[in-house]
Computed example of a mutant assay.
Amino acid sequence: MNGHHDVHSGLHSEHGALAGEHPGRVRDPVVKVLDLAWLEFEKPDLDGAETFAHAFGFTTAMRTADELQLRGTDSGSPCVLIRRGDRSRFVGPAFRAAEAGDLLRLAEATDSRPVPLPESLGGLTVDLADPSGLRVRVVAETHELGALRSQQPQVYNLGHEVTRINVTQRPARVPARVQRLGHVVVQTTKYRETLDWYLRNLGLIVSDFLYYPGQRKRGPVMSFVRCDQGSTPADHHTLALTLGPSNRYVHSAYQVADLDALAAGGEFLREHGYRRSWGIGRHIQGSQIFDYWRDPDGFMVEHFSDGDMFDCTLEPGWAPMSASGLSQWGPPVTKDFLGISPGPESLRELRAIFDALREDNEFDFRRLRGLLKVAKS
């Protein structure tokens, strides 16, 4: 295992790779990004976007007539940039490079060049397109926002370990204060090509692979991918890629202090008329406590807490994909979360299936059968 932990020891997955399967990393990537910097969207209604953002737990970092920057309480860049557009769409992620020199190496390897970012952000970016056509920025030397007052986690009495005496537990029903951006999930019709692109160019490494039941020999159809920070632990996934009939945003996730912050914040959102997609529960891959919501434009966003952190020594786990395997506990996964509830989104995905089956990509009839089996599991 080249000095890496054996996944068969039960550290995070019951099974590891078989001989000849994808190793989940490449030797000598062009650069190794440190983390996600921010996500960029376009929306026609910035007022509605800002109102929801405050209810979800963001703080406005900057607002103009045509742009909204949203931040968490941690120091660093804004988490989300929203610019005014004719329609709502996900523009793409920005990843943070370790230094400006990495941008020069990446630019040379991809036949591109570093360019200055707007003054409100500072620094430089190399703008690329992954094989799915998604714009991917790699940035360096951006402005750093100072930390804000954070929401303090509750003090718990855990079993017989009593730490709270003569004090009641009364979490306020207020927005869960977002601490930071955690990850983004995207769907692609070119899963394997897109995965290899991120591993090769950005130095990401796979934490877990999922495959359709009965189709392991055809390779994985989803990967949870983390940043390689050596011995420094990183989020179980900063990016997740899944095979599907269209290239699209699936959801993004934002860390909050603890379960009480997540649950009380969810009650605040519900009372203010916003729609929960799925939750509250705890995932299997990544272990996060989760709660999924829809913003006014239909984008899915997640509050999470208590996620797994892996260093570079952990090899990928392998598991079959199933709807019931998305959580350890919590309510059954919803049709809305799976994208199959009646409505415009499911109709768009249905049309995309017919289009994808006529085109040359990885989503073929066998993959469609595998996806349908997962949805019914």
Rank of each mutant, 00 (worst) to 15 (best):
M222E: 09
F90R: 01
P29T: 01
L106R: 03
W38H: 11
F299L: 08
S231Q: 12
H5M: 13
T125C: 11
P233A: 05
Y198P: 09
A264L: 07
S322P: 05
D355W: 07
A98M: 10
F365H: 12
P175C: 09
G339M: 01
Y274P: 07
A234Y: 05
A109Y: 02
I165C: 09
T232Q: 07
D360P: 01
G57A: 03
D130I: 01
D258A: 02
C312A: 13
V167K: 06
A37Y: 01
A98R: 15
D6R: 06
W197A: 14
D235N: 06
N247C: 10
S150C: 05
Y211L: 06
R164K: 10
P23R: 02
N157S: 10
A107E: 10
S88R: 02
L338F: 13
I353W: 07
I165P: 04
L46M: 12
G330M: 02
Q285M: 05
F41S: 08
P320H: 02
H160N: 11
L262R: 05
D66I: 01
R83W: 02
S322V: 11
F268P: 01
R348K: 13
L70T: 08
G230P: 06
N361K: 00
L204E: 11
V126T: 07
T142C: 15
G57S: 02
L210E: 15
I165G: 04
T313D: 13
A49Y: 07
T232C: 00
G265S: 05
R27C: 09
W293G: 08
G159N: 09
C79N: 12
L11P: 01
A97E: 04
A65P: 00
C227T: 12
E119S: 13
V250H: 15
S305A: 15
R270K: 03
G273S: 09
H4N: 14
A61S: 10
R367G: 00
H143G: 00
L124A: 11
Q328H: 08
S324L: 08
P23H: 04
H15I: 02
E315F: 00
W38T: 07
R216W: 14
D364W: 06
A65W: 04
L326A: 01
G57N: 05
G286R: 07
R226D: 12
T142V: 15
S287G: 05
D297K: 02
T168W: 05
I82R: 00
R192D: 07
V31P: 05
H283W: 11
H283F: 11
T334K: 03
R137D: 08
M62C: 10
P131M: 04
